[in-house]
Amino acid sequence: MVRGSLEAPERFAELFDRYARDVHGYVARRLGAQYADDVVAETFLVAFRRRERFDASRDSARPWLYGIATNLVARHHRAEKRFLRALERTGVDPVAEAFDEGVVARVDAGEQQRALAGALARLSRGERDVLLLVAWGGLSYEEVARTLGIAIGTVRSRMHRGRVKVRAALGGVDPTAGED
């Protein structure tokens, strides 16, 4: 689809139709719903502008799009931390109702959710990116490695450190149990 859009730009809409909802859910979880529409639009605009640089040997554009979105999320890092701190204080997650799957489905409401938000806010950016790409983005370790341009061993170590920290903050509960 990406390469095909070089000759027929309207084909890029197929890529948007296939992945926009998933990328939106990931970005909304990272930054809050108020930023998601803009970041997703910017993600696909960047992808469209850079489509000639897409590595056609990849079997999916999904990690590429998540990589662009993750880079844009980094620009909003302070907003993300404020969102997680507010969630920690209030226990109200406006995205949980719309995207009630993955981690949210396995973590009890109220105090557990607040503790999770606080734990996520305290992770390093690298740990948080890896953990949330797996837990909220649904990417495999291999896809995360491609998305972030890091070795799979780095993904595994960041995931391990992130899980240990989050598990400790949740009193021994691992919200990513069952994830690869």
Rank of each mutant, 00 (worst) to 15 (best):
M1N: 12
V2F: 06
R3F: 09
G4R: 10
L6S: 08
A8N: 13
E10R: 12
R11Q: 12
A13K: 10
E14A: 11
E14S: 10
D17I: 04
Y19T: 01
A20Q: 09
R21Y: 15
D22E: 14
H24Y: 15
H24V: 06
G25I: 01
V27Q: 03
A28G: 12
A28M: 01
A28L: 00
R29P: 03
R30E: 07
A33W: 01
Q34M: 09
Q34C: 08
Q34S: 15
Q34W: 06
Y35V: 00
Y35N: 02
A36R: 01
D38H: 11
D38S: 12
V39A: 00
A41M: 05
F44C: 09
L45A: 09
L45E: 06
V46M: 02
R49N: 11
R50M: 11
R51F: 06
F54M: 13
F54P: 08
D55S: 12
A56I: 15
S57D: 15
S57K: 15
R58L: 15
D59E: 15
S60H: 10
R62F: 08
P63H: 11
P63R: 08
Y66D: 04
A69C: 12
V73C: 14
A74P: 03
A74L: 14
H76A: 09
H76W: 13
R78M: 12
A79Y: 11
E80H: 10
E80P: 06
K81Q: 15
R82N: 12
R82F: 11
R82G: 03
L84I: 08
L84R: 08
R85K: 14
R85L: 13
A86F: 01
A86M: 09
E88F: 00
T90N: 05
P94H: 10
V95G: 01
V95K: 02
E97N: 02
E97T: 11
A98F: 15
A98M: 14
F99Q: 03
G102M: 04
A105K: 06
A105R: 10
A105F: 02
D108R: 14
D108Q: 12
E111Q: 10
R114A: 08
A115H: 05
A115M: 09
A117Q: 05
R122F: 04
L123W: 07
L123Y: 05
S124P: 03
R125Q: 12
R125A: 13
G126Q: 13
G126V: 09
E127W: 01
E127I: 06
E127P: 00
D129P: 00
L131G: 01
L133S: 02
L133Y: 03
V134N: 02
V134A: 06
A135D: 03
A135S: 09
W136K: 07
W136L: 13
G137W: 00
L139M: 11
Y141E: 14
Y141P: 07
V144Q: 00
T147E: 08
L148N: 04
G149N: 12
I150A: 05
G153C: 09
V155F: 06
R156N: 10
M159H: 12
H160V: 10
H160F: 13
G162Y: 03
R163W: 04
V166D: 02
A168P: 03
A168M: 07
G172T: 06
V173N: 04
V173I: 13
P175H: 02
T176L: 15
A177M: 09
G178N: 08
G178L: 07
G178Y: 11
D180Q: 07
